[in-house]
């Protein structure tokens, strides 16, 4: 068994054990009509704090707080336990009060985005590897620019050499726009190569109208079209990997603001709860 599998098994079992323990305690307390609201509530608060502390840990890499990989593991499995804790605390249905609904929505959003991020972190690397060269996200605009410049230079040179306007026209009408910015994000999201195939078919069709020199240039341009397609794919999926945090992190902050009010109200108005 690989190290990764061993880690997943170990952490998964620990998470399941924690879930089972929580569920059992809450159920047993329910049997004896002991309100578990405060128990699960404080556990939830503690879990949210620990989960949120991962963000702090990333901001303070100099502090000896353990390696980020361990924190990520903790974040993942504790997040799954927190999901169960959340439902044990608030019930399985939509709450009734406006504030409760808001808080419920925030926490549920946190859980959903977290699970989405977890799924992305498992799916995206494979997809990125499968598609082509993996590039650093921040470099993609430069690489795209470089490809665009190279294509322009190829076309310019070809026009100078062959005086044919076909290639130049195709560049102006199609290629310039294609290389100017990321294209076909939605197709890349579903891992479709349809736009690329369409372009390739156009190029094949265009070759019939070109001379041998231009055809060689067009082959080189086609290679850069494929590279640009890969850049778009990489940017789309890496953007997803970074973009889901635009939901997850703000939701965390909003939740952490709402939770203290909920706690205060629970204590101020919760007299009589056993």
């Amino acid at each position: 068994m690989s190290r990764f599998a061993t880690r997943r098994l170990r952490n998964g079992l620990a998470g399941l054990l924690a879930m089972a323990l929580l569920w059992t305690v809450v159920e047993l307390r329910g049997l004896t009509m002991q309100d578990s609201g405060r128990l699960t509530g404080w556990l939830l608060v503690a879990a949210l704090v620990v989960l949120g502390a991962y963000n702090l840990r990333k901001k303070l890499p100099v502090l000896p707080l353990g390696d980020s990989a361990s924190w990520l593991q903790l974040h993942l499995y504790l997040g799954l336990v927190t999901a169960l804790l959340f439902f044990l605390h608030g019930g399985w249905g939509l709450p009734d009060g406006p504030l409760e609904i808001l808080l419920w929505g925030l926490v549920l959003g946190l859980l959903v985005t977290g699970i989405f991020g977890l799924a992305l972190s498992r799916l995206a690397p494979a997809a990125l590897t499968w598609h082509g060269e993996r590039v650093i996200h921040e470099r993609i605009p430069q690489l795209r620019r470089r490809l665009a410049d190279e294509v322009e230079e190829l076309v310019t040179r070809a026009v100078e050499e062959t005086s044919s306007g076909t290639l130049a026209g195709y560049h102006v009408n199609v290629l310039k726009r294609y290389f100017a910015r990321p294209r076909h994000r939605w197709y890349h999201l579903v891992r479709s190569k349809r736009p690329l195939r369409h372009l390739c078919r156009e190029i094949e069709a265009l070759k019939r109208y070109l001379g041998p020199g231009d055809r060689a240039v067009l082959d080189e341009i086609e290679a850069r079209i494929v590279a640009k397609d890969n850049l778009d794919f990489q940017e789309t999926w890496q953007g997803l990997l970074k973009g889901w945090l635009f939901l997850h992190v703000p939701l965390t902050y909003a939740t952490l603001v709402m939770v203290p009010l909920h706690v205060v109200l629970a204590y101020a108005f919760g007299a009589g709860r056993p």
């Binding site: 406006p98 504030l99 808001l102 970074k242 945090l245 635009f246 992190v249 703000p250 939701l251 965390t252 902050y253 909003a254 952490l256 603001v257 709402m258 009010l261």
Partner: peptide
């Protein structure tokens, strides 16, 4: 930008609570 969004979310939550 992500940090800015997070702060805005927190501010929005505080404002909403104050309003409520």
């Amino acid at each position: 930008r992500r940090g800015r969004a997070a702060r805005w979310a927190a501010v929005f939550a505080v404002g909403l609570l104050a309003l409520l």
